[in-house]
Design a protein around this nucleic acid. Structure first.
Lengths: 126, 126
DNA sequence: CATATATATCAAATTATGTTTATATTTTGC
DNA sequence: GCAAAATATAAACATAATTTGATATATATG
């Protein structure tokens, strides 16, 4: 019962749905998500942890990065994630993916470190 | 997006899942649910309202009673409700249905008013 | 080794949810 | 009309979730 409520609770928050929607496009490191959502890193880590505890996402460490990705390994989660992805109006998260795109370009150009450092300015005034 | 989050939020609470599970057996008035869950009436009304706002249940007025029932009129809700009903371990809500059963018997015998009045004592010490 | 980066964690402040107690509203039977 | 029942609503309070700002940890790089 508690497993079920925590699963629904994880899905009951706007920022967390935005993260899921983003991860639909493939795995991302925390820094990518921070740039995309334009939120503080501890805040993003907080929400990522809740999604992880609920079994909705998995992480993988690579050097100093930690990559997160969708975990739809069981049927219920698969359906719920699908629901989120389908039901969230694209427009509702278009800024996120725009920011992510801009950030990724910078990352490629300057290397991730520089991109991370300047992502706010570069993206939101570009 | 907000509709989706409020739907998940409604499902993210134990007492609300218990109510849904109860309503699986057919419509019930508030007083039935109060007796089944052995909780205060305002508390039950509070949770019923959240479920109603989320579109998971509907109500119907009949005299001085208000009957609530499952509303699975759209596919997403139908699936979510099914999920809840199937995933909740029977044992987790067996006391609720036991209390409901006892209450219903009293109701038939004494009339609902008397049963409502004495439901706590009759059921929990019987 | 010293420094910078990526991320996590923690404590304090804030905000949102749930609970309780009291009261209001509507309906029915006398 | 009046009293009792069924339910809702509101205010005060308690608890839980989120945000923020600071700091810790681990890793890579020069």
């Amino acid at each position: 019962m508690q497993k079920l409520t925590s699963l629904f609770k994880a899905l009951s928050e706007e920022k967390r749905l935005r993260i899921i929607k983003l991860l639909e496009g493939g795995e991302l490191c925390v820094c990518d998500i921070v740039a995309a959502l334009n939120m503080s890193q501890p805040k993003v880590s907080f929400h990522l942890n809740i999604l992880k505890e609920a079994g909705l996402i998995k992480d993988r460490k690579d050097g100093r990065w930690i990559y997160y990705r969708i975990d739809d390994s069981d049927m219920l989660r698969r359906f719920l994630l699908l629901t989120v992805m389908e039901r969230i109006f694209e427009g509702a998260v278009s800024k996120d993916s725009k920011r992510l795109g801009a950030f990724m370009k910078n990352k490629a150009k300057k290397g991730s470190a520089a991109a991370c450092k300047s992502c706010r300015e570069d993206i939101d005034n570009g």
